[in-house]
Amino acid sequence: MPVNVLFSARPALWPVYEPLLTRYLAEAGVEARLGTEFDPDQVDYVVYAPNGGLLDFSPFTRLKAVLSLWAGVEKIADNDTLTVPLVRMVDHGLTQGMTEWVVGHVLRYHLGMDRHITIQDGVWAPDAPPLAQERKVCILGLGALGEAAARALASLNFTVTGWSRTAKDIPGVTCLHGPDGLREALSRAEILVLLLPDTAATENALNADTLALLPKGARIINPGRGPLIDDDALLDAFNAGQVGHATLDVFRVEPLPPDHPYWAHPNVTVTPHIASETRPATAAQVICENIRRGEAGEPFVHLVDRALGY
């Protein structure tokens, strides 16, 4: 008997995903029917994005799992009507894209590229940057994305410290955890990268107190989640000279409102949530692998801990 897979995401994505899901499910040996409309009590799996409009899962009495197309699950993790396993998106295309973006902006800060690009006054002022091993980079959050970025930066010989809620072991990276570890990690962070999930425990992780722990003039890169930063505290830290510059890709409100002070602030680079995105070709493989696992009675990969929110 075929499994029924409901695609609940932006309608424009269905023509992109339908042939990919069909192909990879067939290759996995899973007989399936795919569509954007089913009677709820006939659905076995939901391929899901929050912007697809589905909010109430209670009619889906046969549902085995919800398979998210997004890495972040903060918009669904606390949905009381969802009682089946929830799986978040972790795929190598998304991971590679994030790693490339993070490494690019770390190198931009490390090499002083902004200063060199904007010098147009004819003044010859050679000032070579230090080598990477003399530059201290800290990554908050050592999940799949944070670990990949940490490994890539370590391979370039940056002195990399990583912090996570629980202990991790990554070759070439000094891994810290817990409250004391967070203070130590921040104290080392000439360049700080935020790749924490968005949970109640991580909201305003960068606030007046934690920003004060950074080395004076530190640079901040946030491709993680907007609520990780207390915006008022960051603006105050710029004005006090505590933080030198920030590159921000994610915000509490998106698109970033035209009157937001970040747009015009000389110490901020705004990028429009482009650090990474779900790539259909690789995401479809992950979705289909989890459907195969569900049908074979194997554990799902990238299962969300609903209590932790990620």
Rank of each mutant, 00 (worst) to 15 (best):
P2Q: 02
L6E: 09
L6V: 14
L6P: 01
S8Y: 00
A9T: 08
A9Q: 06
P15Y: 15
Y17D: 05
P19L: 12
T22C: 10
Y24K: 03
Y24E: 15
Y24P: 14
Y24G: 06
E27F: 02
G29S: 04
E31S: 15
L34I: 07
T36N: 07
V46D: 07
Y48W: 09
P50T: 02
N51T: 14
G52L: 03
G52V: 08
F60A: 02
F60W: 05
R62N: 12
K64V: 11
A65G: 13
S68G: 08
L69I: 08
T83R: 12
V84P: 05
P85T: 08
L86A: 05
V87K: 03
H92R: 12
H92M: 13
G97Y: 00
M98D: 03
T99F: 08
V102F: 03
H105E: 09
R108H: 15
G112I: 12
D114H: 14
T118E: 04
Q120K: 15
D127V: 03
K136R: 15
C138I: 00
I139P: 10
L140S: 08
A144S: 12
A144Q: 10
L145S: 07
L145F: 01
G146P: 15
G146W: 02
A154E: 11
F158C: 09
F158G: 06
V160C: 09
T161W: 06
A167F: 07
D169P: 11
L176H: 01
P179R: 15
A185V: 06
L186G: 00
V193I: 14
L195I: 14
L196Y: 08
P197R: 00
D198L: 12
T199W: 11
T199H: 13
A200S: 12
A201Q: 15
A201L: 05
N204C: 08
A205K: 01
L206C: 04
T210W: 08
L214N: 08
L214H: 07
R219P: 01
N222R: 05
G224C: 05
A237I: 02
F238R: 05
N239V: 07
G241F: 11
G241Y: 11
Q242S: 08
A246S: 10
T247F: 02
T247K: 02
D249R: 09
D249Q: 09
F251I: 14
H260S: 06
P261S: 01
P261M: 05
W263R: 01
V270F: 03
V270K: 01
P272W: 04
A275M: 04
A275F: 02
E277P: 05
T278W: 02
T278G: 10
A281F: 11
T282S: 14
C288W: 02
R293T: 13
E298T: 01
P299I: 01
L308E: 01
G309W: 09
Y310A: 04
Y310H: 11
